[in-house]
Design a protein around this nucleic acid. Structure first.
Length: 425
DNA sequence: TCTGGGGTCCTAGGACCC
DNA sequence: TCTGGGGTCCTAGGACCC
């Protein structure tokens, strides 16, 4: 049986590319996409990268360059990106035996068994070509016998022009050549802290990590890093996961457009996040038992101390009913709230998930018919809001929402809202 | 003035039990 | 009351990812 061959397909500058897709006038213009609240730069077009705009910098720090070079900024438009992502993924699914959607802009693809029929590099070029023509998004393809090596091959395909966007790293000699060129911190799973510690041991390149003793690494680091060492040597330790595992936790949190100083506004914000989280919970058809609420001041304000507080509560029985969690969240906020702070961020977290109906009943469990009625009500609310967001909402979410996030450069929802469809003149 | 949000996995340490 | 090993379960925190 032949060993597995993985490809990592990764969209180039994904958010920025999505924004350009419906704006041919911006084809050669530097474009950046901002995080929620228009705070940081989270994506840059090729032109913006060339101008030296760094990933993750706060917008206010590069205002001068933005004006000087005529860089165009967009607020994050997740509805648009999710829809384009779906098109990329279904294109890949139509062309390959198995796809694991790894993130909004990346997928691992199973290319096992392609080789005797077709050259792998040619196959990669074909994938790239089809996605480009059918969706309009440019991707790079890295091919290798383990996911970690496929990631590295993709890094090379992105970094070096002459690869034409595809790197086949199935040959062990080629693997070692590339590994020697790549700094250890570019390896998948090796972040800032780990690379610091590895450098202390004299390990600065991916090749040195690959050549390290796996047992030693396990003892001094962890099983995760040991697995990385094995993967770098072409031993596949991380399987392709085609079925998306259901989430273990749901977090809904945001920084505020304006600081919150009064409890009523915080109450609204928390209620808003609770209803978002519960909606997600129902979408994945699960119930949760554990709710956490947290509030905090700005981590960047030098004048004031950071204040951060969180509290959790367990329900008697798991639920996905927004009203149940709203009531509990209110209790938690009463315990958490301290006057005289300017709060910058808050959030809620749902954990301890159950499949509906599969849990221990107790004395206080609502009777089945009552549960059914509650479930129907939530479904009705979700259906109404699916047609038009915020058709109905809970009074505690507030009407004015003065604290809601800034999105001053939002592009239209070209592909997901009838009113925003592009018009061909 | 202005610094994202949403996840996963692993490990260490405490509580508790036998 | 002291002594001790071994096991499980839970939680908090750290590190990573996109």
């Amino acid at each position: 049986m032949p060993s597995t061959i993985f490809a990592l397909v990764d969209c180039n500058n994904f958010y920025a590319s999505c924004e350009k897709l419906f704006r041919p006038d911006l084809a050669n213009t530097p474009v950046v996409v901002l995080s929620n609240n228009d705070g940081c730069i989270v994506a840059r077009s090729k032109e913006a990268k060339q101008l030296g705009i760094k990933m993750g910098v706060p917008l206010f720090k590069v205002q001068k360059e933005m004006r000087q070079h005529g860089i165009v900024a967009f607020s994050s438009n997740y509805a648009l990106y999710a829809d384009i992502s779906q098109r990329v993924m279904s294109t890949l699914e139509s062309l390959t035996p198995a796809v694991e959607v790894y993130s909004i802009d990346e997928a691992f693809v199973d290319l096992t068994g392609i080789e005797p029929l077709q050259n792998l590099n040619d196959f990669g070029l074909m994938l790239r070509d089809k996605v480009q023509n059918w969706v309009g998004i440019t991707v790079c393809v890295g091919i290798a016998p383990s996911k970690t090596l496929a990631k590295l091959a993709n890094y090379a395909a992105k970094k070096w022009q002459k690869t034409a966007g595809v790197v086949d790293l199935t040959d062990p000699i080629r693997q070692r050549k590339l590994l020697a060129l790549v700094p250890v911190n570019e390896v998948w799973g090796i972040g800032r802290k780990l690379s610091k510690r590895l450098e202390l041991l004299g390990i600065t390149t991916a090749l040195q990590l690959a050549d390290a003793d796996a047992k030693y690494i396990r003892q001094h680091f962890s099983v995760v890093v040991e697995r990385t060492v094995r993967e770098l040597n072409g031993e596949s330790c991380i399987e392709l996961e085609q079925v998306i595992p259901t989430k273990q936790q749901i977090i809904s949190s945001r920084s505020f457009g304006q600081r919150i100083t009064c409890k009523e506004q915080m109450q609204q914000a928390i209620s808003e996040y609770v209803s978002l989280a519960c909606k997600k919970l129902r979408q994945q058809k699960q119930e949760a038992k554990y709710l956490t609420v947290f509030i905090r001041t700005s981590a960047f304000n030098q004048q004031h101390d950071l204040f951060s507080n969180s509290k959790s509560i367990a329900l008697d029985t798991p639920s996905s009913d927004t009203r149940v969690f709203l009531a509990k969240a209110k209790q938690l906020l009463d315990m958490l709230w301290v006057n005289n702070f300017s709060y910058a961020k808050a959030g809620v977290m749902l954990t301890d998930f159950y499949n509906p109906g599969q849990h221990q009943l107790n004395l206080f469990t609502a009777p089945a018919d009552k549960q059914q009625a509650n479930h129907k009500l939530m479904q009705l609310i979700d259906n109404l809001n699916a047609k038009q967001d915020k058709t109905i909402w809970f009074a505690s979410q507030g009407v004015k929402q003065a604290w809601s996030m800034k999105r001053e450069h939002l592009s239209p929802a070209y592909t997901t809202n009838w009113r925003d469809l592009p018009i061909v003149k």
